[in-house]
């Protein structure tokens, strides 16, 4: 199957970026302009894990979990602030060609144990008890609870959406409780990583929102500095989403970014605005603030909660 490998070597390198402190703008510029690189939507579709910038210590376990979720053959490349994008792009292409030609893959960083032992436990050996109990195949099953929008008390799914989620600002870890796809509870576990002023440029902020609206092409154009060619951008953002007194709503902020202005308004504790929102609305709301503004607002809200109100 060597012809398949030579054919694959010519393909664009599938990369999943885990963006650390200070490198958000460079990574976005890299993917928008460098040829031969493709940003994978999830690590399952990627072969290279690009660790950009420095990852703080508390985010290391999350990086290990992320690294182990890439299918084999995989490889990790670090990109420190000083290295120019042409060099990293060449290194990525070269790493991908090695992998395509059968270079050895990286082993797991975490031990190979299921979250809870389940083999052979319980009457049927799948670790469960009765209908809903136990940890069938390693995890318990979600339990019902009150819903804040619609009186049906159905299962509440709780999970920590990690620092390297493609739809959240890099570094932000949220503990979310979901009923269906509506967020019922949201807590901030870690603040977004600090990014330089360049990441708050209106073009980059607008590009992030356009990507969430499904407009890959227009987002790349914005990142490269041209006007986006797309229809119904303003209409797609729901009116009144994330409206704060003095900061307008997500639509106004997107309009301002598209016309080059940077909106001044800062939200007051955005994390508390998440419960009640559907998943897509929540991601649009978080992306409708510049990374710096959002980080300051979340930090300010966190200090507020530490001081007993």
């Amino acid at each position: 199957m060597s012809w398949l490998r030579t054919l694959a070597a010519g393909a664009a390198a599938p990369i999943y970026p885990s963006i650390g402190a200070g490198m958000l703008a460079e990574v976005e510029q890299l993917f928008a302009s460098a040829p031969g690189l493709r940003r994978a939507a999830s690590p399952r579709d990627a072969a290279l894990l690009l660790v950009a910038g420095d990852i703080p210590a508390e985010a290391r376990p999350a990086l290990d979990r992320l690294h182990d979720q890439l299918p084999h053959p995989r490889r990790t490349l670090a990109w420190k602030a000083g290295e120019p994008s042409t060099q990293i792009s060449a290194r990525l292409n070269e790493a991908w060609r090695d992998l395509a030609h059968g270079a050895p893959s990286e082993p797991d960083r975490l031990p190979d144990e299921p979250p809870n032992p389940w083999r052979g436990i319980g009457p049927h050996g799948q670790g469960g008890k009765g209908m809903m109990g136990g940890t069938p195949r390693g995890r318990p099953m979600a339990m019902t609870g009150a819903d804040i929008r619609d009186g049906l008390e159905l299962d509440r799914y709780t999970a920590r959406v990690g620092p390297f989620a493609p739809m959240l600002p890099p570094g932000l870890t949220l503990e979310l409780t979901l009923q269906g796809d509506v967020i019922v509870e949201a807590h901030v576990l870690s603040l977004p990583f600090p990014q330089p002023e360049e990441a708050d440029l209106p073009a980059l902020c607008a590009a992030r929102m356009l990507r969430l609206l499904g407009l890959e092409g227009a987002a790349d154009r914005m990142t490269r500095g041209h006007a986006p060619r797309a229809a119904w951008i303003r209409g797609a953002v729901p009116a009144g989403l994330g409206a704060w007194p003095g900061a307008g709503d997500a639509r106004d902020r997107l309009d301002a970014w598209l016309s080059g202005r940077q909106e001044g308004g800062a939200p007051r504790d955005p994390a508390r605005a998440l419960p009640g929102l559907e998943w897509h609305e929540a991601t649009l709301l978080l992306a409708s603030f510049a990374p710096g503004t959002l980080r300051r607002a979340l930090a300010e809200a966190q200090d507020l909660q530490e001081i007993p109100a």
């Binding site: 009150a146 819903d147 804040i148 009116a239 009144g240 409206a243 504790d269 605005a273 909660q305």
Partner: peptide
């Protein structure tokens, strides 16, 4: 999306005060 009606009883008071304004003008 309608303005949600917050009926959950067992929420801690600190969290329960909900920045209602984001839910305004919701269609």
């Amino acid at each position: 999306a309608p303005g949600p009606e917050h009926g959950a009883t067992h929420r801690t008071p600190a969290k329960s005060e909900h920045g209602g304004e984001h839910r305004t003008a919701h269609g």
